[in-house]
Amino acid sequence: MIAIEGVSKRFDAARDRRHLALNDVTLSVAEGEFVSILGPSGCGKSTLLYIVGGFVEPTAGRVLVKDVPVRGPGPDRGPVFQEFALFPWKTVLGNVMYGLQQGGVPRAEALARSRELLTMVRLSAYENFYPKELSGGMKQRVAIARTLAYRPNILLMDEPFGALDAHTRTGLQNDLLHIWDKDRKTVLFVTHSVEEAVFLSDRVVMMSSAPGRIKQIFDIDLPRPRSRAELLLDRRFQDYVVEIEKMFDDTAQQAPA
């Protein structure tokens, strides 16, 4: 589904200040797979996601989606950002409908589909609110609905729950798995929380920083559908978390921080 082939990215701030954010990253993700990218801050994990999204061009290497090289953003890959990136001048409903209307979907159909999605993220009572009137968790649910609206095959999630408090965060993790279980889209999920990565993913990709490289890949062999309450007691879940956490600490210590 997604093939990342030898991707490197160098940022040239000035002639004498070059920064190698990603160095020769190769990874393939199967259809319907939920893969988390985990790493210390500054390891280029978000940059990697932006390259798959087509928002940022790699300095070397390429990304194939369904065997077609990525040349720019497209509705087959839907991003969800930590900053929500909602349109402040549009209402909740307006935000969700935007992509559909721009894509030429008739208004009645766009309206029906948007309302359906807002019901799914439990926000139908808020369709006429402006983003500034919502809490962080609600904003992120709107952003997810906005992305799901144009039916991407792949979700690119860039620390989507990073700006939320712990309680809201676990709530949204449950929501996400619940939504994902319905049609099992391919998901690339960037996070720096080990527990979040293990709870959500089929595979966890651990990256090291400066330059960003894949350090190790863990297969998470836990049954689905997953329930948080059960998993927390599950010995295998705990083992994964401890093992990855340990490696994460080693990686983070090597990093210049």
Partner: peptide, 26 residues
Amino acid sequence: EPKLAWSARAAGVSPVRTLFTVVLPA
């Protein structure tokens, strides 16, 4: 914020339309 424009581009909106439907209102 570039991510506002990215959100539109990812929805399949052309660069020129993104300029006028997202960048301008923002």
